[in-house]
Nucleic acid binder design. Structure first.
Lengths: 118, 118
DNA sequence: TTATCATATGAACAATCATTCATACGATTG
DNA sequence: CAATCGTATGAATGATTGTTCATATGATAA
């Protein structure tokens, strides 16, 4: 599609640039997954849970108690976080302990926090 | 509140740990802002826009054409991104060029992409 | 001034999503 | 076995939010 040629060549981007810009875009699928990943950090409850797990593993009911949020709500969110591999868990008897899956979680949140400090 | 003492001391977290974990949590306000920031990255259209702006500034109609999305939709999203200081703009005649506000945007997205490559 | 181009914006609608409620499952204890 | 504890889950609801549509604003050109 002749993007630039439809309009003023001197203001809008030239056609060969348009091609380049477009070809630099990741695949639709990748972009979708990226947005989906960031959505996980876009909820206060989930951010709180992740922060709690920064230093140590915690069981469901402790997370719920510490945050003052329903066990059910926490459990739903833990499921979401686990399905997206941000956290992992291990079972000890009746208790299930959750912890961060990898360091990217810390890094991503840290970068976000840094952006806000300006 | 006596968190741990209500339950089995040997499985659930001890009270002084609970205090420590809680005190390590950022302020409610900060957590809210963090979630709000990540929400911005949690939408495919906004991620696409940001990616387009990685290398160069672009005007509204070019972004819309390149992405195949309505000018109105793009304009709404640009407003959101700008209100949250992820992008900035400059006006040249009728045209408004948008560009990334700082490097955190690139870093945050890069970290997210890295997490997905596993 | 009038026409046109580029962008912005308000309202409405549709879709997404987090929480609640009730209940079920799994494991331990008595 | 029954009772209890910790966790998980499905359905429903309320709230949030991205897009569309119509229209307005701002700037340039004729």
């Amino acid at each position: 599609m002749e993007v630039a040629e439809k309009r003023n060549e001197y203001i809008h981007i030239k056609n060969h640039i348009a091609q380049e810009v477009k070809s630099n875009l990741p695949l639709e699928d990748t972009l979708y997954n990226l947005a989906d990943l960031f959505k996980l950090f876009g909820d206060t409850t989930r951010i709180k849970i992740l922060y709690l797990l920064f230093d140590r593993e915690l069981c469901v009911c402790d997370i719920a108690t510490l945050l003052g949020i329903t066990q059910s709500a926490i459990s739903h969110q833990l499921k979401t976080l686990k399905a997206n591999k941000l956290i992992k868990c291990r079972r000890v008897g009746k208790t299930v302990f959750y912890s961060l899956a990898d360091d990217h979680v810390r890094t991503i949140i840290a970068q976000g926090a840094e952006h806000l400090e300006e």
